[in-house]
Design a binder for these strands. Structure first.
Lengths: 122, 122
DNA sequence: TGCTTATATGAACTGTTGGTCATATGATAC
DNA sequence: GTATCATATGACCAACAGTTCATATAAGCA
């Protein structure tokens, strides 16, 4: 994190050297997009509750439906979003489909996010 | 992460003991909501690019406007969202307003998210 | 074979969100 | 004071996202 050079804006106001140096270092637009996409998938109450549940145990769709108290279709739709984002994985077992978290980065993100949230309350 | 007990669904299909135990451990609905809200704010391409830039240097609004190549109003609107979520902070300096990240949890989240994203590509 | 159960999916509806335009505020400079 | 510049904000609109309803698929059971 470099220090900001104190000077008034020329012309169009901005600080050309700082802007140039930041521009060089910034993420490309593709990675930024993918990152935003990941957070967007995490940015829904239903999906967070699903992940919170799956963090504790592998569960089938109707378990999740019962836990969340919402209808099965809504849960399935959200599971699809999570599957497409490769945040959860599923395996078939008889009539049921069992879901679980796809990797441990996700629990890390959720844990870190929780810390930030509780930090803000102090 | 406890193991799932293999048994077929009774009645309404679900596994009552597992569901009960998960239910006990799950986040309350308020924390889940706050967490989802945090990720929702991070889940936008423009805001991620703003954070990526601010991670590298404190910047004024017109710097960001130039960096992102979008109009000033759009940038200000998104800065407001980030400010309301206490993800960035601002200080006045003459005519300018300088923005920076509000705490290091945020850069941690972004870093961790990036790792996850690049992990998926392998 | 048909019947039931678990899950998935498509269509439609509704609420939300990101951007644009126009305008307001607030500070500096003249 | 007035003019100008940097930023903020309100109204509006188009695109999108989450839920529901109805229906499809697919497995197990009689």
């Amino acid at each position: 994190m470099q220090e900001h050079i104190e000077e008034s804006c020329q012309e169009q106001c901005f600080h050309p050297e700082v802007v140039e140096s930041v521009r060089r270092d910034m993420l490309g637009s593709v990675p930024a997009d993918e990152l935003a996409q990941l957070f967007k998938v995490l940015g829904d109450n239903t999906r967070i509750r699903i992940l919170d549940a799956l963090y504790r145990s592998e569960l089938c769709v109707c378990d999740l439906t019962a836990l969340l108290g919402m209808n099965q279709s809504a849960v399935s739709h959200q599971l699809r979003v999570l599957r497409d984002a490769r945040i959860v994985k599923s395996r078939k077992q008889g009539k049921n489909v069992l879901y679980s978290l796809d990797d441990e980065h996700i629990s890390g993100l959720v844990r870190m996010g929780s810390e930030h949230v509780s930090e803000l309350k102090r």
